[in-house]
Structures are given as structure tokens and as C-alpha cells.
């Protein structure tokens, strides 16, 4: 399979006062194939979110390169960056704060469509279609982000990300802020989109059970480095490193705790 996204030696340093630089992401390389779902797991502060922001160019990398379809987008600016955003989109952890509180959900989705060059008259119809695709009725376009539930808002956020028909969708803990039943619904939506549109996912998550069920391959991150890489079953059921084992065990323990009240 051809790689759709190739990341090489990606590094991000944050300068710290008094101390040396803080390496949030430390020489990370990976590839994402077409239609593949790559999970990224790791404890809080292991650099997962920074990695997501680097890949979609919301933060500038210190070093390394990002290639989309073989084209270097590490230094993309202006027009080229806008074009990149037609291919890479992101779903944030907190759906409500990912929408402008003073704009309706429809206006938020419309911003993507208008910037992508969709005619003004057509925008509303497209918004309705996108919302329906994500299981929301058309009237949600007129609601404000604080007027809908977290799950509904996350559906709208996914609809928004799909507005430009991206090939890669980065989910930064997209289900963590939702409760379990809603989480399941959102996962089903993501699943269905993968099957129907062949979207590749970079799926950042700390729920290993979810990762095992949803991802083809998994990267385990710790202190900005990739400590283990492999298929989901390999990494979670037969971890090679101590850290991955601890991560996997912690999930098992929780399951045991939940199982035996």
C-alpha cells in the first residue's frame, strides 16, 4: 500500500525558562497508509496532542518533515497550507469549545465550505447534508454550541471536518470527553465513515480497549518518543516493552474492578 502520510524525525522543542529545552515530541517517524487507522496511545503529557497539532500544522515543528502524498508540507504556507487542510482535518477533544460560542453550528460548518470555494447559495444545502450524514437533523444548524449535548456537538464537529472531504482525519481524544454510551455512538459513526469513505485515521486515545477494537496499528508514546509499534493485538495483548505492558495492565485492572463490584 502507498503511504498517504509520512512523518520523519519530527521533533518539537519548547523553550523552558531556567532549564534546557523541553522535548515534547522527540524524533518521531511513522507512516499512515491509505484507509488505515493508526492509534497513538500513551499517558498524559507523552506528547500525543503536540504530535497531532504538528501533523496538521497548527504548531511549527523544530525539526523533521511531514509528507502528504509524497509532497513536503512541513513548510507549507498560505495557499499551499489551505490546500493541505482540504486533505487533513482534525476533531478535537472538547467539542463545545471547538465551536465559536457566538456562532451557530451551521455557521461554523459554513466557514469551512465557503473557504473551500462553495457558492454561497449552496452552503446551506451542503450543511444540511453533512449534518444528516453524521446523524443530526437539519435544525441543528441553527443551534449554538452550548445549546446541544456533547455528543451532538461532537457529531457536528465531525460533520465540519468532513465538509472538505479530507483523506486523513486526526481524532485527538475525540471521545474522551463523552460518556460511555455516546462514546459508542461516535465510534460507530467513525467506523461507518471509514467503511463508506475510506478515510485514514490518526486516532489518539488513551482508552486501549477502544484502540484495540478500532485501530489497525498502534504507536505507544512515552516522553515524546515512540517506545513500541505494531498491530493493535500485538501491542495490547503481547506487549514487548515494560511501559506498554503497564499501560495494557492498567486497562485490564480497571476492567477487573468494574467486573467484580
Amino acid at each position: 500500500m502507498e503511504p498517504i502520510l509520512e512523518v520523519k524525525d519530527l521533533t518539537k522543542k519548547f523553550p523552558q525558562q531556567g532549564k534546557g529545552d523541553f522535548l515534547a515530541v522527540d524524533h518521531i517517524s511513522f507512516r499512515l497508509d491509505r484507509g488505515e487507522t493508526l492509534g497513538v496511545v500513551g499517558e498524559s503529557g507523552s506528547g500525543k496532542t503536540t504530535l497531532a497539532k504538528l501533523v496538521c500544522r497548527l504548531t511549527e515543528p523544530t525539526k523533521g518533515s511531514i509528507r502528504l502524498w509524497g509532497q513536503d508540507i512541513t513548510k507549507a504556507k498560505g495557499k499551499q497550507l489551505r490546500k493541505t487542510y482540504q486533505n487533513i482535518q482534525m476533531v478535537f477533544q472538547d467539542p463545545v469549545s471547538s465551536f465559536d460560542p457566538r456562532q451557530t453550528l451551521g455557521a461554523g460548518i459554513g466557514e469551512y465550505l465557503r473557504n473551500a470555494g462553495i457558492a454561497k447559495g449552496e452552503v446551506q444545502a451542503r450543511v444540511t447534508k453533512l449534518l444528516e450524514q453524521c446523524g443530526l437533523e437539519a435544525e441543528f444548524a441553527r443551534r449554538y454550541p452550548h445549546e446541544v449535548s456533547g455528543g451532538q456537538c461532537q457529531r457536528a464537529a465531525i460533520a465540519r471536518a468532513l465538509a472538505v472531504k479530507p483523506e486523513i482525519l486526526i481524532c485527538d481524544e475525540a471521545t474522551s470527553a463523552l460518556d460511555v454510551t455516546v462514546q459508542r455512538q461516535i465510534m460507530e459513526l467513525l467506523w461507518q465513515l471509514r467503511d463508506s469513505q475510506g478515510i485514514s485515521y490518526l486516532f489518539i486515545c488513551h482508552n486501549l480497549a477502544l484502540v484495540q477494537a478500532f485501530c489497525h496499528r498502534v504507536l505507544v508514546m512515552r516522553q515524546g518518543k515512540i517506545v513500541e509499534e505494531g498491530t493493535a493485538d500485538e501491542v495490547i495483548l503481547h506487549p514487548k516493552t515494560e511501559y506498554a505492558r503497564i499501560l495494557a495492565d492498567s486497562v485490564m485492572e480497571t476492567e477487573l474492578l468494574v467486573g467484580e463490584p
Binding site: 497548527l58 497550507l81 487542510y85 465559536d100 461554523g108 466557514e111 473557504n115 464537529a157
Partner: peptide, 21 residues
């Protein structure tokens, strides 16, 4: 804020982000 990052991902320019958000 996340919604400013989302506006960037929407392909909005800095002027659009300042005036619109």
C-alpha cells in the same frame, strides 16, 4: 482556544480569524 485552531483548519486567513472570531 480550540475554535481558533478549527478556524485555521477551515483555511481562514488571520484577518478572517480576527474579524470573524
Amino acid at each position: 482556544a480550540d475554535f481558533i485552531a478549527a478556524a485555521r483548519l477551515a483555511g481562514s486567513s488571520s484577518a478572517q480569524i480576527i474579524l470573524g472570531h
